[in-house]
Design a binder for these strands. Structure first.
Lengths: 363, 363
DNA sequence: GTGAAAGCGCTAACAA
DNA sequence: TTGTTAGCGCTTTCAC
């Protein structure tokens, strides 16, 4: 045995063919599992392949076929549990259909996202799933389309790009979450999001180029408005892009001077950081401040009190978008589909009445 | 502008060459950034490439060069924050050196790990970083070596495989953690790990094929033994492979009959699940039970009390192993290096004296 | 500095 | 059923 190539050139179809005393084409047929071959030849070639320890060169294979069996995925931040869970959904669906997944991280930076897309197209992935960081600059996404490979969007829709898209009902669930706060008596509700623009100052929705975030803010503002809260815009805080930034924002937000009575956090990383600051400041949830966060992350159920969360069907989000893409890869030509998955709110213990202090000062 | 290929064949070097009225070789030279070309020709070719919207076919490129500029990474579970953080370390180091990363998940299943390795070799990655799920079956890892591509091991060493390896001082830190518990007066200390063998029954260390886990258990047992604790082996619990299994194990463990006074959890996922069960059972940390977990995960600092943890340099672990691998890719031929990074323990509030009850029943 | 031609490992017509 | 012959898009001698 072990005639193995120590470190020289790897063994090719030709080598196997020679060893099995058949033509290159015949060897390729059994090795590649296509065409028809007699049982004897099949056995001979397999034996030769085993003896030589043949490994197919996937590169050469996909160069001739034009398919790679790979789905490229570009997400904002793989360290965010939201995305890791979605990626597992994608991976499971991909594996079930015989595809592999290459993962790239954009860090929510448009330039990195562009580079990743370029790389993946260069590697000739069969299709792409992207969580677009912006809706302004989507030239690279149009390029994908023009390259003839299917593209599907995850979690964030792009009105101008008519491709398969799976999102959740962000606007609606943001309204429901805000309503819970309003109905508990809150009038000073802050919304904190990672998306940044104009140095963190929120003016209006046209600044926000991430559809999911825009919809959430939209829902938040709508409910605040309906509740007769004056100028709710001033309570929207942008730029919680890192734990450090979030800490800075939360510390400022929670200083006694102009403290809101409730906070809505746009993702679990932000929610966690805010909760840490609340703890550090010696404040109590929900007595001093109420908190709701998007994403039913691990930590939200083990704090005291446990945190009320917006529970998105994250795994399904990934699974569905992958399934949609795979259908395209298999030749589906139906018009682009826009799936909106329903979300729910898990009420735990982090919402209460606003503290009396605020009633006094408000009066 | 936008002469773009609507969805037909993509534009190749030949196309650009024709457009620029030079030979294929010349066009390839400027497009590929090698060889020498006159300024004029360079400009012409670039102009033609832009006009035609040329995109290099990375596949063809790496087929001829034999290099792909890609590092393949196979980890146990990307949803485990330990691995996502390590992967960020790898990605950062890779990007800094101009490499890209493709990620595969083994789910800690040896067969999946093998398939992933096979795929990555087939895709002709330049090198691999693997977190081997087992030390018994490493034929696929030897294959990597034989294929001539460098391999580096992350977090788990393999005595029989002499390749670059980066681990932490698991044995030592497990001893320190156990000692904290012993010195607080605990005599009934449980160790819970994800590794499974023989249906969860722990007999001896030869069952454990994951080096990091074996070392931890080794350290744990050594300190227990030194403390004069009788038969500490009975306190080692295997098989916490999923939240469900961990919940089952923890529930059994925490039933009043034979409850330990302290628990050491082998990763943060296990620690979290145990903490949830403790909460659900209405027990109090550290009054009723003390807890230490490996990995300084998010949630450990926001619980009441916050959890004492083993703080591994996870990001550095990833960064270092990638740097080692990249050195090989750049031609380093020094003998394989085995780096062992130091860890520390962050003492928070989850360790206290054993409850009186245990003293009574022990007497 | 530039071009012609060979070849990477594989698949895909087309013949036999 | 099997073999022959072209390529896929790129890099890389080796001449000019």
């Amino acid at each position: 045995m072990k005639k193995a190539t120590p470190k020289s050139r790897s063994v090719t179809v030709s080598d196997v063919a020679r060893e099995a005393k058949v033509s290159k084409a015949t060897a390729a047929r059994v090795l590649g599992g296509y065409g028809a071959v007699s049982d004897k030849v099949h056995a001979d070639v397999m034996a030769a392949a085993k003896a030589l320890d043949y490994r197919p060169n996937e590169l050469a294979r996909s160069m001739t076929t034009g398919k790679s069996g790979i789905i490229g995925v570009v997400v904002g931040d793989i360290e965010n549990p939201f995305f890791s869970l979605a990626v597992r959904g994608i991976s499971d669906a991909a594996r079930a259909a015989g595809f592999n997944v290459i993962l790239a991280n954009s860090g929510e930076q448009i330039e990195v996202e562009k580079a990743a897309v370029r790389l993946l197209i260069g590697k000739r992935v069969d299709g792409l799933i992207v969580t677009p960081a912006e809706s302004r600059d989507i030239s690279h996404l149009r390029d994908i389309y023009r390259s003839g490979r299917p593209l599907a969007l995850l979690d964030r829709a792009l009105p101008d790009l008519d491709v398969d898209t799976v999102t959740v009902d962000d606007r609606d669930v943001a309204m429901r979450a805000t309503r819970i706060l309003v109905e508990a008596g809150h009038r000073e509700i802050a919304y904190v999001t990672a998306v940044d623009a104009d140095g963190g100052r929120f003016r209006d929705l046209t600044q926000i180029y991430t559809s999911s975030v825009r919809e959430r803010i939209e829902g938040f503002l709508a409910v605040c408005h309906d509740a007769g809260i004056a100028d709710p815009k001033r309570h929207v805080h942008l730029g919680a892009t890192s734990p450090e930034e979030t800490c800075r924002i939360a510390t400022k937000l929670l200083s006694p001077s102009d403290r809101p009575t409730a906070i809505l956090a746009s993702d679990s990383l932000i929610g966690l950081e805010i909760f840490k600051v609340i703890l550090a400041l010696g404040l109590s949830v929900p007595k001093d401040i109420s908190l709701i966060t998007f994403h039913d992350a691990d930590w939200t159920s083990v704090t005291s009190p446990p945190i009320t969360v917006v529970d998105q069907p994250v795994y399904s989000l990934g699974k569905s978008v992958a399934e949609l893409l795979i259908r395209r890869l298999q030749g589906d030509t139906r018009p682009a589909e826009r799936l909106v998955l329903p979300t729910s709110i898990i009420e735990r213990g982090s919402v209460g009445s606003p503290p009396k202090r605020s009633l006094e000062t408000a009066g």
